[in-house]
């Protein structure tokens, strides 16, 4: 099918290109954080979709959020199968988990006066990104949009076309999973020297 991209007026084309240029670093970062696909391909396909639906953008000020929604939906279309797959961790094991409590109990830095802050400080940018990508895609998307991109829970619900209550519950599970994966990753990668908890039988060392 031929595209509708040629239908844009020159002024619209210029406005879209300017918007795309301005938002490029953020869209690329968002694509990398969502993960699971080639980020450049995702950005380009999203921009093509944006081009085709440019007439639906009434206010250029809303352009960044509009592009975020398009990119997120394109990513969801591409990952549709993965988004439906059940978690590796069964629901009953995915119950309440408090990283705060487990740090206190395991006390990986016994001489520290700022134990919890020190544990978080052990995670580099690379480590945090690795942990984020261990969170299943359908939870990761909520974490990324809410806590990294900074949209409100209501806005995330609009972007994902889900009821706000569903998104709140998705966010709750996402946070729990993120905390659980942080602890697991710390144990497996030896991030907290001397920490033994977090190791799961059958999982090997993670080289980083």
């Amino acid at each position: 099918m031929g595209s509708m991209v040629g239908a844009l007026r020159p002024s619209e084309r210029a406005a879209l290109r300017q918007l795309a240029r301005n938002e490029l670093p953020r869209l690329y970062a968002l694509a990398r954080r969502l993960g699971g696909v080639d980020p450049e391909d995702l950005v380009q396909e999203s921009l093509l979709r944006a081009c085709r639906s440019f007439s639906s953008l009434r206010d250029l000020q809303a352009g960044p959020k509009w592009l975020t929604t398009i990119l997120t939906n394109t990513w969801r279309d591409w990952l549709r199968k993965d988004l439906r797959e059940p978690d590796e961790v069964p629901v009953e094991e995915d119950g309440p988990f408090s990283l705060y409590h487990i740090i206190e109990e395991e006390d990986p830095f016994p001489y520290s006066d700022t134990l919890h802050v020190d544990v978080l400080g052990a995670f580099s940018e690379h480590d945090v990104r690795e942990v984020l990508h261990r969170v299943p895609p359908r939870y990761r998307v909520a974490l990324v949009l809410r806590y990294i991109e900074g949209y409100s829970a209501t806005e995330v619900a609009e972007m994902l076309e889900r009821p706000p209550g569903t998104v709140m519950s998705q966010l709750h599970r996402a946070r729990q999973r993120f905390e659980r994966e942080m602890w697991s990753y710390a144990g497996e990668s030896g991030l907290l020297a001397g920490a033994t908890a977090g190791e799961r039988p059958g999982r090997g060392q993670v080289s980083s």
Binding site: V5, L16, V37, L48, D77
Partner: peptide
């Protein structure tokens, strides 16, 4: 990556055939 995508943006909106998803 920036250079590649900026070249793509420079052509965005030209009358071209739709590109397919990878």
């Amino acid at each position: 990556a920036r250079n590649r995508m900026e070249r793509f943006i420079d052509e965005l909106g030209e009358e071209t055939e739709e590109r397919s998803c990878p």
